[in-house]
Structure formats: C-alpha cells, structure tokens
Design a protein around this nucleic acid. Structure first.
Length: 170
DNA sequence: AAGTTTATCAACCGCGATACG
DNA sequence: CCGTATCGCGGTTGATAAACT
C-alpha cells in the first residue's frame, strides 16, 4: 500500500470551473505555492480532484500564461518544433514562454493543421502531400521526422534544439 | 429569424513514467 | 525489490460561439 488515493470518488465536481473555485485555487497557490496536487483540493476547500486543479492552474490561471492570438512567429516556431519533436506538446510549450501545451495542441489541431494542408504539406510528416512534387524537399524533411532527437537537421533547426534541450542529461 | 454547420476553447480520460512505502 | 499512488502528458470529447444557409 503506497499512498492515499488521488481523489475521493463521489465528492468531486466536474466540468467548467466556477469563478469562486478559480479564486480559491489562485489564493491557495499564491499562499502555498504549487506542488502536491493530491492534497491541494482538500486544503484549498475545493471539490475537485488534484488532476483537475493542476490542469486549471497550468492552462488558465497561472499568472504568466499568455492568452490571445498566436503570432506568425509563434506559428512558425511551433511548426518547426513539431517537425523535430512530433506531438511533444509539453516540449514545444517549453520553447514558447507563456503558452501552454494544451493551448498549442488546440491551436495546432484547429489552425496550423489546416494551414499546412492548404499549402499542400502533410502536418504529420511535414512532407508535401503530393509525393511526386519534389524529391529534394522530401529528402530533407524525411530525415528530420525520423529522428526526433535532433540530429542532422538544417543548421538553423539544430541550433534551436540545442538551445531548447539543455536538460537532456541533468 | 430560425435552424444548421463549423470553429474554437476548456476540460476530461487513460496511459506511461516515476516516486514512495 | 515490488506494488501502488501520484504526476504529467497526449488524445479526445463536450460546450458554446460564430458563420452560414
């Protein structure tokens, strides 16, 4: 028997957060800091499971979360990083200050995917949808997508990865 | 003006990795 | 060392707003 259960079944709210719940969560974290999501809801007087509190805080309530439209630069960076990392949203989010993985994921699925499609690019492989289009292009992107750890990319992308992934061996 | 479709955002669910007893 | 709780992530769904017919 390791630990106590994550959330008491039957006592938790679900669905959209009420303003009062938000305020309680913010107040609690401001007073005690993040961490120990399991015990947080009880301590903060919330009828939510810790998982839900964590998500709400990270995606919405955190003071440094930037809301609003993505800039073209951000779009491009997301596309680049996605071509290197795949659906590693948390890694991508780490390179975009103020953006959350959930937000980026949503943005990708709603906007960027379509944008790439309209350019004739497969958003999964980052290769032209029409396979006969250009064999030279496919060569490059092809190597990229098979090696998510960032070897043999264009120098520009390599640079970005080096900067972004210093924690590879802590 | 009403009904229908599409787009967007917030939240949940399940799983794998990790930490703890 | 093993079993289980917890955390964090990624995929998916649901609710609502906006656009269209």
């Amino acid at each position: 028997m390791g630990r106590t259960p994550c959330c008491e079944k039957g006592h938790t709210n679900k669905g959209a957060w009420a303003r009062e719940e938000d305020e309680r969560l913010i107040a609690y974290i401001q007073a005690h800091g993040e961490g120990c999501w399991r015990s947080l809801p009880k301590a903060a007087g919330l009828l939510r499971c810790g998982k839900s509190c964590r998500l709400r805080w990270i995606n919405y309530l955190r003071p440094d979360v930037k809301r609003g439209n993505f800039t073209d630069e951000e779009d491009e960076l997301i596309i680049k990083l996605h071509s290197l990392l795949g659906n590693k949203w948390s890694k991508i989010a780490a390179r975009l200050p103020g953006r959350t993985d959930n937000e980026i994921k949503n943005h990708w699925n709603t906007n960027i995917k379509r944008k790439l499609h309209s350019k004739g690019i497969d958003p999964v492989t980052h290769r032209p949808i029409n396979e006969h289009v250009s064999s030279t292009n496919t060569k490059l992107t092809c190597t990229n997508q098979n090696k998510p750890d960032g070897e043999e990319k264009s120098p520009e992308l390599n640079l970005e990865l080096r900067i972004s992934l210093p924690s590879a061996s802590p």
